[in-house]
Structures are given as C-alpha cells and as structure tokens.
Design a protein around this nucleic acid. Structure first.
Lengths: 362, 362
DNA sequence: TTGTACGCGTTATCAC
DNA sequence: GTGATAACGCGTACAA
C-alpha cells in the first residue's frame, strides 16, 4: 500500500528499460525482442501494473468501443438484448460499454460524455427515445442506432437509424385477436396520460382496433398507470386491475401493454375469484420468457428480441464501416439524407404467443 | 460533421479567452467574473462542447467515483440493490460507475482496470466472490466491499469487508420451517456439483437441518442444476422438478434455493396436477418482489436487500473516509489487521415471508 | 531493436 | 480576474 503510483516510467526504471520500450512490449509491437518483452512482463506481473486507460484513450484514436445506453436496466425485456450485444461486440472485436442511465438523466448528454471519454465507435440507444434533444444528437460524432424505441412517426425518424416493432400495429393486432376470440368488452392497462412513448402508441393501436370493430371506447375500460415510473410494474397491473374490478364495470378481456403489468393483473383477477381465461382473457405484450412459467401461462405478443438486437448491431457496424470509408475518402462533411438512412431502418413484426391466459371461444 | 475536434482550446479561441479561464468557468471556480462565465457558457452551448473526461481524469486526483461490479445483471435480485447504490452515491456526491462483468471475465482484473481509468474512490463487488484471486485484490488501491457474497468461512474473510446473509444458517432455517410445517420428504433444487458459492452453502444448510432432525439425506431428493450458468433460472426449476416427479420419488415439499428456480418449479408441479401447497409445499429463497404476485404466491426467505445495499455503502464510505485520514497523517503503509476489519463486516438475517405456496399442517 | 522528444486535453500553479 | 506554463501517463515519429 501507499506504494508509489505505478506508471509506465516506474516499470521502465524497475526493469532498466526505457518507457517507450515498455509501452511497445505491452502493446505487442512487432519490433520488440522476445527477451525484453519477457523481462518487462515479469516486472509487470511482479508489481501488478495496469496501464492507465485515461492516458491511453487520450492518446489513441480507435478504442474499438461500442456503448449501449439503457434507461431502466431493471427491465427484463432489455437484459436478453444486452446478452446479444455482448456476444456481437466481442465477435467483432469491440468492447461493450454498458451504461445505465437514470430516469432523470438525459441520454444524449451521457452519450456525449461517454463518446469523449471512451472514444466510442458507435452507440446503441436502448429503449428510451432521445430524439427530442435532436440538436445534441447531431453533435454526436459516432454513429448511433435506436433500438426498441417508439417510432411515433416515420417521417420524424427518417434521418435516424432504428430497429423496432410497430407498436401501434401490434397493439391493434392484440386487440383484434381478443375480438376474434369472441371477447366484447376489452379493457386496457396502459401508461399514464403524459406518456408519449410506446405506451401511447399501444393505446392508439387498441383504439384503432375498437374503431375498426365499430365499438365506442369506454373510458372505464382504459386503465392508466398513476405515474410514469410505475407504469411497467407488477404493482401497476395489480392496482389497476383491482380498481377496474371494484368499479363494477363489466369486462371479459384485458390487454396489458407489457408482460410485467400482466403479471400483477393475473394476480388481482385471481384474488377476486375471476377465472382466467374463462371469465376474463388476458393478453400481455413483449413475450418475456417468464410468461411460459406463469400460472396460467401468459398469452402475449412476442417481440423478436434477439433478432432485433442483432439487427441493431448489424446496422451500427455497417454505419461504422461506412464512416471509416468516408474518412479515408476525405471527409465529405455532409449529413446523411433520409434516403441513405433507409437501409439502417427496420421494423420487425411481433407474433402472438398463444398460451393459457386467453381462450378462443367463437 | 467532420468539424475540427472541439477542445477547450478551441472554445478559448472562439470566445477570445484563455484556455485556463474557460476551464475555470466550466468548473465553477470562485474567482471568475459572472460576465466571462456567461460568455463562455454561451460558446459552449452554441458549439456543444463536452470536456474530455479522459484528460480530466488524467489530471485530477479525486474523481469521486464509486464502482459497482456485478456478474449477471440479469439477476433481478441485484437490480433493487443497484437502485440503492445509485441513491446513496448521489446523496454523497459520488458518481456511480456500474460495470457489468461477463461470466468468463475476472472481476478483480476489471476492477484494477477501472480503478486506474476512473480514479475510483471505492469498489463494491456485487454477488460474485473474487476472493480466490487474493493477490490481485491486495493490489487494489481503493477500498472495496463484498456485497451479497458467499461467506464460506469467516476466517478466510476476516481481512475483507463484506455484507451478506448467512446462507448456511438461512437455508437450514428454511428446511426447519418445512419440517415444522409437518413435511417429511423435502426435496431441494440446488446448484451443480462444482458450485463453491452460495449454492453449496444453501445445500449445506439443508443437510444440516436434515441431520438435526435425524433424517438421512436421500440423493433422489437432491436435484442439481445441469450447469453453472443455468442454475438460477426458471428453466432449471422447471426441468429439475419435472425430473423429480417422473422419477417417482415421493416428496411433500420442495426447497428451491432461489425464487427464480421456484417459479419454474411451481409451473412444473401444476402441469403434473400436483396441488400446492396441499400435496407439495414450495419455499423459495431471496424474497423477490414478484413472489407476491405469483399464483400461488411464493413463500420465500426474504433477504433484506435494501438494508444490505445500504450497509455496504456505509461500510465503503467509512473505509474511504478512513483512508483519507490515513493519507493526511502520512501514509502508514501497513495493511489492515483482521480486528480492524470487523466493523466493516456484517451478516444480516433473513425473514420467512409466509405466503400461499406453503401450508402449516401440524 | 531501442531510446528521445513530443503531444493528446485538461487543470493547478504561478505570475501579472 | 485572467493568462501562460507545466504536468498528468501514455504512444509514436524520429533518431540512433
């Protein structure tokens, strides 16, 4: 302890070699004698020297780092994606920088900091949608892609790379499915009023389906979460369903806009002695792995999580490659046109994962 | 794009002020005129300048960073802890560096790198137990604490700071509880044979209880996971239970060494028409929030997650403070004795969270 | 093959 | 209150 700070110079002194040679030994330079290399390695091991990454990053230009920014690492939906990102990064010889963004923080700001700090080659924005601070986004030097984000309006997103599902369309499909199962009074467990993300898109989809079926939306069947932070929680599903049941409103189906909500919902129904799927059918959204193990197992709109993560990485890697080519061919300095971005935009389709919580009785 | 790299010098030029003054403006130095500060801020906003953190860290000595290293961010047990860490850090004016460590990586190595890179003031090792590479641990300059780790042997841990539960004792309590509920043939869903962490401790506790009750362990009732990665998963619980049922062995209770395992177990029982808790009682371990919403809701040994996270942070902060005092009083250079570490060691008690999955029928 | 000298972007110290 | 300058630890062009 209290040991003099271990720098490359120290190691140089201790091994009787110049600092630059030590540096070369560490970085496996081609023109280093095996003998010196061995000697340096010895000293390094002995004293447990670790290069200062800040100094290194300050110097280097390509750190081969890709960052993934997530808001709400709690969300099990993202964890399976993160695994894919990790796999994909290492297989392409990039390091993955996983950055958890707190609810209050601005993703773009964090990204800007991280970019400088880690010399990022690329960025994945997972979940949250930082498109509002578009000016800051423009300033990011590294290419970036939105993954699993609310594409409210394709025109607005025309200049961005994204991989997502069509939340509106899929939510409509879920509601259609419930109608097709013979259900008439379908409740929805959704986000709070202020929501402008996937929550409102999924609600829109629900409303579209109702309209299509010539049914007037009943406000009593639209159950909103109390606050934004609470939305995608079991407790929200539980409380909302409790309130719905107690309200006395008749309903024969529930569409929970996420599986986590559905879990709380199933519990509440059970506590009220309401039989699922007999009296009330329940459908979730996301297709979380746990759905398979619930009792009753959960019918849900499954998002192709792995595929989406893979597609995001592919898009990002392609953008990085393109960027490099551009830089070689002298910086053109122009921003990408909407047309050029198309190849980096992908909307996946969900699939209905049919299980026990919903019955077809037509 | 292709813009000249934005450095503090650039900003200085653009605002007609020297670089050092710009630096002072950014860091809210006391001796800066409000006018200059405003002007600098203007330019910064206009061009979207972000300081290079690498350079900053290279220069600064106290970065006020605390790192949390987690293996398996997937684990819902850790996520609630992370929230506490975040809260505690910001309230003490530290930044939290959350680092996800892959299964194959060595935590100590990552810690050493991170320490250099981020000038860490302290480190929390969450979950995994890096005590094996004790030589590397010794080399860490920053104080560190193990949180929620398998304290196999208190003597081995006498020189380390840790916060955990007594996995052996709690597992014994769980098994005792099942006996007290009138169960005779208690199966355990546990880790693979190679496990040397909490998995084996919990198994030990189970065996101790059996012994205490004068019951010979039945190998057919000890269900091990196929591999280490699979252990704490729903699928493991499901498959293990399926195998157990098919084996024809009689049993009237199951102790799942984690709630995630219990979830799969409940499902398997249900599919085999086995009634819980009537025919078979199930008890989990961890006390995950989801347990409350399961059907049947899950009786589980609840770990005081928040309190444990808080205690870890307190221990760490105290160690950091002590370190600072030491440095002022001239580096003593001695390593801590076991006696001195005691105040940084804490074993919490779990509590049985009684719910529907277990019935008392004595 | 190895050593010397310089610069990466920032902040602290010292002059003014 | 502000500006010049050195230094943080490292990698590399250049010289030897």
């Amino acid at each position: 302890m209290a040991a003099k700070k271990l720098t490359i110079k120290e190691i140089a002194k201790l091994s009787g070699i110049s600092a630059s040679t030590v540096s070369r030994a560490i970085n496996n330079h081609y023109d280093i004698s095996p003998e010196t290399k061995r000697r340096v390695q010895e000293v390094i091991d002995k004293y447990g020297y670790v290069p200062n990454n800040s100094a290194r990053n300050l110097k280097l230009n390509d750190a081969r780092n890709i960052a993934v920014l997530v808001k709400g690492i709690t969300n099990p939906f993202f964890t399976s994606m993160i695994k894919v990102f990790e796999r994909e990064c290492t297989s392409h010889n990039y390091s993955l920088v996983l950055e958890h963004v707190e609810e209050s923080q601005d993703m773009t700001e964090i990204a800007a900091l991280l970019e400088k700090e880690k010399r990022l080659n690329g960025i994945v924005f997972l979940g949250s949608n930082p498109i509002q601070s578009s000016e800051r986004l423009k300033r990011l030097a590294a290419p970036y892609v939105f993954c699993s984000v609310a594409v409210t309006d394709r025109k607005k997103f025309s200049r961005y790379a994204y991989v997502s599902i069509d939340d509106r369309r899929e939510a409509e499909a879920v509601t259609d499915y419930l109608f097709a199962c013979g259900r008439k009074r379908i409740a929805i467990l959704c986000a709070d009023r202020e929501d402008i993300s996937i929550g409102s898109l999924r609600l829109e989809g629900y409303l579209n389906s109702l309209k299509k079926h010539g049914i007037e939306p009943d406000p009593a069947l639209i159950c909103r979460s109390a606050s934004a932070e609470e939305t995608y929680t079991h407790e929200n599903g539980y409380q909302s369903t409790m309130k719905l049941v107690r309200s006395g409103t008749a309903f024969d189906a529930i569409f929970a806009i996420s599986d986590s909500i559905a879990i709380g919902c199933l519990r509440a129904l059970r506590e009220n002695g309401i039989e699922v799927p007999g009296q009330v059918s329940v459908v979730g959204f996301d297709g979380l792995p746990i759905g398979k193990y619930l009792v009753p197992s959960l019918t849900s709109l499954r998002q192709p999580v792995e595929e989406m993560a893979e597609a995001s990485m592919q898009a990002l890697l392609a953008m990085i490659a393109e960027r490099e080519r551009e830089e070689e061919a002298a910086a053109s300095g122009r921003s990408r046109t909407a047309g050029e971005m198309k190849k980096y935009q992908q909307i996946f389709s969900g699939t209905m994962q049919e299980r026990e919580s919903c019955r077809k009785d037509m």
